[in-house]
Design a binder for these strands. Structure first.
Lengths: 143, 143
DNA sequence: GCGCAACTTGCAAGTCTTTTGCAAATGCAA
DNA sequence: TTGCATTTGCAAAAGACTTGCAAGTTGCGC
């Protein structure tokens, strides 16, 4: 998809291998990735970690990628897909993350409520579920 | 509230000043605090940062406190109040965090869906809204 | 294609949060 | 009060990110 490179170009930002790869890697990943995980998916020569961080910050400020907070040590990023709206299920035992496309997450009423009661303009939200995955439920550790 | 100290005692964990203070500080805070922020609220002598981290890990594993991921550099913690269920609104411009007691966040249908479709047993969820607070909306920076 | 200016990258060093080892201090049950 | 497991403080380390700077690329006009 050249659309995102166009966005970069139009904003006067260079289209580099690093940036295109990050967008591709995130677009192909079913789950959000850490900066480290992203770098690992590069074929050699891998970019410096600092470059990955800088590019994620840039792409994030342009709205092309988005960071996801999953109570982990490191942050994760995912590609911003127009229209698509995913949430995640995280296993507290093994850390497994699974995407969960909420068929209808109607939070618009709550968002309206927030606007009228607090004067906040909500631009996005994050919704994650935590619990135990089937595998860990079977093992019966810490039920 | 002595109930929480009882829980510690019953589990064979010592009831120390550090632990009681953390529970009290979090219970009194309207917003989730970082480990650093918690330590700052101690009256001298303040515990070592390592102790705060260790105790937060302990209290968290016992379910007495819970960590909240707000896309910040540091994690935040809040006291677990039975029944109470809060969400937060975070300003992307100034970082201001506001508690938002959702009158009805009916995610139970989604949680049921997750259980039946993925086999995941959901124990809790995190829901945060991001946007701009009234103050920053007024300033008109990055509308 | 060429060259310049602006933007990017790699590298190294630095910051900040969180974790860990260990000996001294403390909590608690008997 | 004693004994012993649990906790704490301290110091060092690990890990995630950030920043300064010189060298390397990209984009644009020619």
């Amino acid at each position: 998809m050249a659309g995102q490179s166009d966005i970069l170009r139009r904003l006067g930002r260079a289209v580099t291998r690093g940036r295109e790869e990050i967008l591709r890697i995130l677009a192909e990943s079913p789950l959000p990735l850490t900066p480290r995980g992203i770098r690992d998916k590069f074929t050699d020569p891998k970019p410096d970690a600092a470059t990955v961080y800088r590019n994620l910050a840039l792409l994030s400020s342009l709205g092309l990628v988005r960071s996801v907070a999953l109570h982990e040590r490191s942050r994760r990023y995912e590609a911003t897909e127009v229209g698509a709206h995913r949430h995640r299920v995280v296993c507290r035992s093994c850390g497994r993350i699974e995407a969960f496309p909420a068929r209808e997450c109607d939070l618009s009423r709550i968002e309206n409520d927030i606007r009228s009661r607090l004067g906040f303009r909500v631009t996005d939200h994050s919704l994650e579920f935590f619990g135990k995955c089937p595998g860990c439920l079977g093992k019966g550790n810490r039920p």
